[in-house]
Simulated assay, not measured.
Amino acid sequence: MNLPNVVSDLVKAQNMYDSAAYANCFSEIATVADEGKTYHGKAEIKRWIEAANENYKTVMKPIDFKESEEQSVLKAEISGSFPGSPVVLSYHLELVDGMVQSLKITS
């Protein structure tokens, strides 16, 4: 599967539990929407992913990627220390200038 560099970097950072590298995939004004909450900017995104990594030890396995001008969608099998693991989630990404501008995670 051919992923844009920033999406590949995002997956790699997640699987290494590297919250700084994960946050660096996002623009300064990026947003993340996950589990009914929204996080704004790199600092909040870094704190969110640090907490998620600590609580769930999530590993991503990309299974599909579709790209359009408005939005890209990465489907990934997510496994970790949470009830119902593994699950398939959709990562709705807005990519701007090689960075993630927004990310919304849905089931």
Rank of each mutant, 00 (worst) to 15 (best):
K61Q: 09
N53Q: 15
L10M: 10
K75N: 12
K57D: 01
K104L: 08
G84N: 06
Q101N: 12
S107A: 12
V100T: 05
M99I: 01
M99V: 02
V7M: 00
A43G: 06
K75E: 14
K66T: 11
L74K: 06
N55L: 09
G80C: 04
D34Q: 08
S107W: 06
I45C: 09
L3S: 09
P83E: 10
E35W: 13
N55D: 10
K57A: 04
T106R: 05
D18W: 07
Q101H: 14
V73R: 10
V87A: 13
V6G: 10
L74D: 07
D97E: 12
D34T: 05
K61N: 09
S72F: 11
K57W: 00
K42V: 06
F82I: 12
Q14W: 13
N5G: 06
I45Y: 08
V11E: 02
P83A: 07
L89A: 13
F82Y: 14
E69W: 00
K12E: 12
A13P: 02
V88D: 10
S85Y: 07
S102Q: 07
Q14A: 15
L10R: 00
K104M: 07
N24I: 04
S102K: 10
L95G: 03
I105C: 02
G36I: 04
A52E: 08
N15E: 05
S90F: 04
I45V: 09
C25I: 14
I49M: 07
V100L: 03
S79P: 03
Y22C: 03
D9V: 02
D18M: 03
D18S: 05
W48M: 14
S19D: 03
L10G: 02
A52G: 06
I45D: 01
N5M: 05
E28W: 00
E50A: 09
S79L: 11
L3A: 09
V96K: 12
Q71I: 14
K37Y: 02
I29Y: 12
A51Y: 03
I105A: 04
V73A: 11
P86Q: 08
A52Y: 04
N15R: 14
I63E: 11
Q71W: 12
L3P: 05
Y39K: 10
L93V: 11
M60E: 02
D18P: 08
K12Q: 12
C25P: 06
E28T: 00
K12D: 13
M60N: 05
T31A: 07
N15D: 04
K37F: 07
S68E: 13
L103Y: 00
I49V: 15
F26R: 00
G80L: 06
A33V: 14
V73Y: 09
N53T: 03
